[in-house]
Amino acid sequence: DHDVVPEDKFQETLHLKEKEGCPQAFHALLSWLLTQDSTAILDFWRVLFKDYNLERYGRLQPILDSFPKDVDLSQPRKGRKPPAVPKALVPPPRLPTKRKASEEARAAAPAALTPRGTASPGSQLKAKPPKKPESSAEQQRLPLGNGIQTMSASVQRAVAMSSGDVPGARGAVEGILIQQVFESGGSKKCIQVGGEFYTPSKFEDSGSGKNKARSSSGPKPLVRAKGAQGAAPGGGEARLGQQGSVPAPLALPSDPQLHQKNEDECAVCRDGGELICCDGCPRAFHLACLSPPLREIPSGTWRCSSCLQATVQEVQPRAEEPRPQEPPVETPLPPGLRSAGEEVRGPPGEPLAGMDTTLVYKHLPAPPSAAPLPGLDSSALHPLLCVGPEGQQNLAPGARCGVCGDGTDVLRCTHCAAAFHWRCHFPAGTSRPGTGLRCRSCSGDVTPAPVEGVLAPSPARLAPGPAKDDTASHEPALHRDDLESLLSEHTFDGILQWAIQSMARPAAPFPS
């Protein structure tokens, strides 16, 4: 592969990997390779389809078979030569091979799209000592099968071997295949498990690692696999990028399955594409389908809103127990993405979901129960707010008499603000006073009005108090039968009158 990737590009890729991570280095090298001529790309395919690569990765054979028959990708048995050289000459001794072996032994695996480039050397060096003999053996194999790289107009793939297949390693990572398949204008990513390549439709969760975000852009890794992070704060999961590491605690105790298979379609829109997988259930989501939507993949363990709600429900009964003089119970939860139609709101002032922060849900004790107040519409209280300059209440639009249902020339009671006709409430011909108009209920007259088809109010509507207090003497005590009587009149003013009279009014101040 030294004929494909020059030394300066190799060093530039290593520097970019240390600065921005393996995914960015892979993407940059792939983009550079696509700008080369067809001879360089053909050399790339020839390096990929060597015999030892085909033996190690069985899924490469179907890719090789898909090439046109007129494309010669065979390799000479006596060494490598550029395709432009007409004579089959043995190339001179390859010093770059020693360079590659020494550099890969030092860096474990470079971040390139060629056999030198995919593992994360920093994480491997940190986690190597417990498994040094086995990992050293794996390093000797890295130059042979560490990076199976493929690129063409139909298929483009980048393979990364790992030393996680050490025997006896619980939940060992089998390997990473960062794979971009450009077929019919689409893009897919796969993962390699035990020599087999699994596409998103049959993606397997190998051991402790999972394909957290099938994305090839942005600074985030394709698999949430930063070796420096180790395990999740809650004892979460091992990262795919942690090559040759000792077994780590796999999943939280509440995880239903340690080796679950995540779905390959969004649980909201039932469509495929780039998904984020939940650590607590097999569901996966688009970032845009979450509520609120996320802009980037959160670091650490992530769970959907259903799993978060289940966790909150487990903690909430203990938080609601009476604990005198104790601060509110704080339950730190990872930043969760909410699927459509589901929402768990945190306290005000918290950062938005999706940031690399930890939301704190506070379970406050329930407030003391209070008697429910009568629910009145805002339009129902409008007549009470229509007060004239002299303190006389004006008529609201649409006000109707509670007896006849007519809204023409209605009066407004100064005591309960109900609309009424003087002739309907006082049919006996009582003279109307000039000021202080009161309806039949507030004036103490319980004589029913002779209106055909309208039920008369119940005599129990009024329960006047002592006459010594004029204001308190007109406080009506309405009961269920009074409400039914008012409802039978089918008037809004009657219902409003009952609601206003049912509310307690402050006692009249004593004259000074």
Rank of each mutant, 00 (worst) to 15 (best):
G241E: 05
Q243L: 07
Q243S: 09
A248S: 10
D255M: 14
L258R: 06
H259I: 05
Q260D: 04
K261A: 04
K261M: 09
E263V: 05
D264L: 06
A267Q: 04
E274C: 06
I276A: 07
C278Q: 07
D279F: 07
D279P: 05
G280Y: 12
G280L: 13
P282F: 08
R283A: 07
R283C: 13
A284P: 13
A284T: 06
L294C: 09
R303N: 10
C304F: 08
S306N: 07
S306F: 07
Q309P: 07
A310W: 15
A310D: 12
Q313F: 07
V315H: 14
P317L: 12
E321S: 08
P322Q: 13
P324N: 14
T331N: 05
P334V: 08
P335E: 09
A340R: 06
E343Y: 06
E343Q: 15
R345N: 13
G346V: 06
G346S: 14
P348Y: 14
A353K: 11
M355P: 12
D356I: 01
T358M: 10
Y361M: 12
K362F: 07
H363C: 14
L364K: 09
A366H: 15
A366M: 13
P367Q: 15
S369F: 05
A370M: 14
G375F: 13
G375W: 14
S378N: 10
A380I: 14
H382P: 11
P383R: 06
L384C: 13
L385A: 11
V387E: 06
E390T: 06
E390L: 13
Q393F: 14
L395N: 11
L395S: 12
A396N: 11
D409K: 03
T414V: 12
F420E: 00
F420W: 13
R423T: 14
F426N: 13
S431W: 00
T435A: 10
C439A: 01
S443I: 13
G444M: 10
V446R: 09
A449G: 14
V454P: 10
L455N: 09
P457H: 05
P457W: 01
L462Y: 14
G465R: 08
A472I: 11
E475W: 08
P476F: 12
A477W: 06
L483A: 05
L486Y: 11
L487T: 03
F492R: 00
I500H: 03
M503I: 13
P506I: 02
A508C: 14
F510P: 12
P511L: 13
